[in-house]
Design a protein around this nucleic acid. Structure first.
Lengths: 218, 218
DNA sequence: CCATGAAATGAGAGTAACTCTCAAAAGATT
DNA sequence: AATCTTTTGAGAGTTACTCTCATTTCATGG
């Protein structure tokens, strides 16, 4: 919302658009996240307390909770749904839905891998936590559901249906489930190979169902 | 697992198969659940504490936690995955997967509506909580994911694939997502009509995708 | 540059969901 | 009836999270 991404591209003096306050908030947010990733890497998720995180980020526990409603959110939260929506809407009118999804998701995966959203190590840890820690996993799925609702909007506009239509909802949620499963699969297999490939295969299943073809594994 | 269902059908003396201990455990479990449903109905989920539940069920808080690992589990937990698996496997060999699912899910919905798993009022409350209370919702999805894994086994056997195959996983998880969404839709619309109908429509979407047909809503 | 207002922070007290431990109670067994 | 095993209750402890209020820190208009 506050377009944090623009901040780190500017030379120090040229863009004092954001007041000191806003800049500090962004810094604090990052400090909390960074501290969390470091501590969790060292000690594990459950063993890391909010107090430790607060100490490491040099803020008070109160402040941690002001920035993130729950401990899980420190790891899970992202704010890229608007971006996804924007890119989806930018796809050509006539293009089949699945095709659009392929493109958009492909780009999202690329950006994620390129370190735009955090260091690669952090992203990997994040993925692992989303699979391994029940609380984080649960929060992730909630977050994905909200992404699904965003998707509903776009799909509804495209197909001329109502966004609250059962069919639209089911379709979008199955898309989200497919993507989630692809990511999970990738993580469960040591995060080897490109996640994008798994995503494409997942979308294949959505498109064509489960064809009883070859019976091989990864 | 302990086939609780058989207990209440037997006349008192004829089937003392289960020792007093087992019978008591079943009773305690039910007492906790019943108390929870009653209190939650009256006060809401968040306002109901474990202590209150323990009091109402006439056990200690410790005992509540022994029976249910989390508060959400009191509401969410069921043990019908094995039943689902069994019924799925009982379907004829050649039958298309989606068709089998239709039958099995249809029967499950019927049984659920007939009060076999709890009073109708309890079932309705349960559904509402699974939609409305974030924590319960999250736990529900986790539980659905484990149902998805069960489904994977069956699907894998049917299609001659590996149960950990990405395609199988994606397919099963999208099935589960579709069913979840149908249930959610039903609840969000005041639980009017038969949930079975929504489920069938959800499976239609899985089978045929989102056809840009009519643009009407419920 | 300072005074005033607004927003962010920190400190502290409080709640409730869990966890662990240990001793007492109750059912099972011989 | 005596012993062994399982279940239970009591209590203390941890931690995520909430609320309140005083203090600090930034923004702003004069």
């Amino acid at each position: 919302m506050t377009m944090a991404a623009t901040a780190h591209r500017s030379n120090p003096a040229a863009e004092p658009r954001l007041g000191l306050r806003e800049r500090k908030k962004i810094k604090t947010r990052m400090a909390i996240r960074t501290a969390t990733y470091r501590l969790v890497e060292e000690q594990g998720y459950d063993a890391t307390t909010i107090e430790q995180i607060a100490d490491a980020a040099e803020v008070s526990p109160s402040t941690v909770f002001r920035y993130f409603p729950t401990k899980e959110d420190i790891v899970v939260t992202d704010e890229y749904d608007p971006l996804l929506e924007e890119e989806l809407r930018a796809r050509p009118e006539g293009e089949p839905l699945v095709e659009s999804l392929r493109h958009v998701v492909h780009r999202a995966v690329e950006r994620s891998a390129s370190g735009e959203y955090g260091t690669p190590a952090e992203m990997r840890l994040r993925s692992r936590l989303m699979v391994e820690v029940p609380a984080v996993r649960a929060r992730t799925i909630e977050s994905m559901a909200s992404t699904g609702l965003t998707l509903c909007q776009v799909v509804a506009d495209r197909t001329g249906r109502d966004p609250s239509d059962l069919e639209v909802r089911v379709y979008c949620m199955s898309v989200v489930a497919a993507l989630t499963e692809a990511s999970r699969y990738w993580t469960e297999h040591g995060q080897r190979g490109h996640m994008g490939d798994y995503v494409q295969r997942a979308l294949d299943v959505l498109e064509h169902g489960l064809e009883p073809r070859n019976s091989k594994s990864p």
